[in-house]
């Protein structure tokens, strides 16, 4: 629900350099993108755009997108200074996507599955009728074809503009999982930064296996809501993936660089394949030679930090 809060951060500064949200280091954009948006200094995992996630996860050329014709309807005629229908059109034009969910079938290291990825760039990845419908269809399609389903969550929660209709998508997606469970199907949820609200409180937490990326903010209520409610400062690392692992809420933390291998391993277990064969560590490619331009000399130049704010990505 509180996706607008995160939405402000999504626009990265143009130009050649990007400042790490976590440690403040200046990152050379080309290198940063080659590292799949992980900070080379502190290991902070930036939110990955939906299409990049698919490219990173599915075997090259195997992703077949489905249900692209589904379009949201403004049933409430929601108006918060801007009409929701207008907001949708503008977002569709800006992102080139019809909605906050990209779904279809794919192979992950040769293992066929149904793959659904939430796209944070589209209204904070918020779950409305199209997202809920696509997730339900992912699960139903997987059940029908006897495939495992892998869902990447990245969302501020339910979409306020669709009111109780979006609330009921929590029911729809969980209902689909309940049906799949009855037929013995397997579901894997990967929670990435951020995963909060109605998405965490529905399918993202209700799958068979729960994976998270390092440092991802995962929770029911947003940290600001909690801090306002209890009128206290929140403990360090609260609601981060490492916190959830410690509290027994998730199965594993997997860094982005190893995500595909780990998924293949788990999918092998889920589908009766040999995990050792599925999990072939990719040969480490020789470091590409990147020409690094000089740091900008403007006032934006960061002062060298003596100690980083947070250490991330220690989990292997």
């Amino acid at each position: 629900m509180a996706w607008t809060r995160f939405a402000k951060k999504k626009d990265m500064p143009g130009g050649l350099w990007i400042k790490c949200e976590s440690c403040g280091a200046m990152l050379f954009r080309k290198e940063f993108e080659q590292k799949n948006r992980v900070c080379g200094t502190c290991g902070y995992h930036f939110t990955l755009p939906g299409r990049e996630r698919i490219a990173l996860t599915a075997d090259h050329g195997t992703f077949v997108e489905m249900w692209t014709d589904l379009q949201p309807v403004d049933r409430l005629c929601f108006n918060d200074k801007v009409l929701y229908s207008e907001k949708l059109k503008a977002t569709q034009a800006k992102t080139g996507e019809t909605e906050a969910m990209i779904a279809g079938t794919a192979n992950i290291k040769g293992i066929p599955c149904v793959l659904g990825v939430m796209n944070f760039a589209f209204l904070g990845g918020s779950m409305g009728m199209v997202v809920g419908e696509k997730i339900a269809r992912c699960i139903e399609h997987a059940t029908e074809k006897g495939l495992p389903v892998v869902l990447f969550a990245c969302s501020g929660g339910a979409r306020m503009h669709e009111g109780a209709i979006s609330l009921m998508q929590m029911a729809k997606t969980c209902g689909a999982l309940a049906m799949q469970n009855r037929k013995g199907g397997i579901s894997i949820s990967v929670m990435t930064h951020p995963t909060t609200g109605g998405v965490t409180a529905s399918f993202a937490s209700a799958c068979d296996l729960l994976i998270a990326e390092p440092g991802a903010l995962i929770g029911f209520a947003g940290p600001r809501v909690i801090a306002t409610t209890i009128k206290k400062e929140l403990p360090k690392g609260f609601q981060r993936a490492e916190f959830l692992l410690e509290k027994g809420q998730i199965d594993r933390i997997v860094p982005r660089s190893q995500m595909k291998d780990e998924l293949a391993r788990l999918l092998a277990y889920a589908t009766g394949r040999d995990p050792v064969a599925a999990y072939k560590p990719q040969a480490v490619a020789a470091e590409p030679v990147i020409e690094v331009p000089p740091l900008p000399l403007s006032e934006e130049e960061p002062e060298p930090k003596s100690k980083p704010k947070r250490k991330k990505g220690k989990q292997g």
Partner: peptide, 9 residues
């Protein structure tokens, strides 16, 4: 979140 999700499911 997981308590609510599980209850719904």
């Amino acid at each position: 979140a997981s308590a609510i999700a599980k209850s719904i499911l």
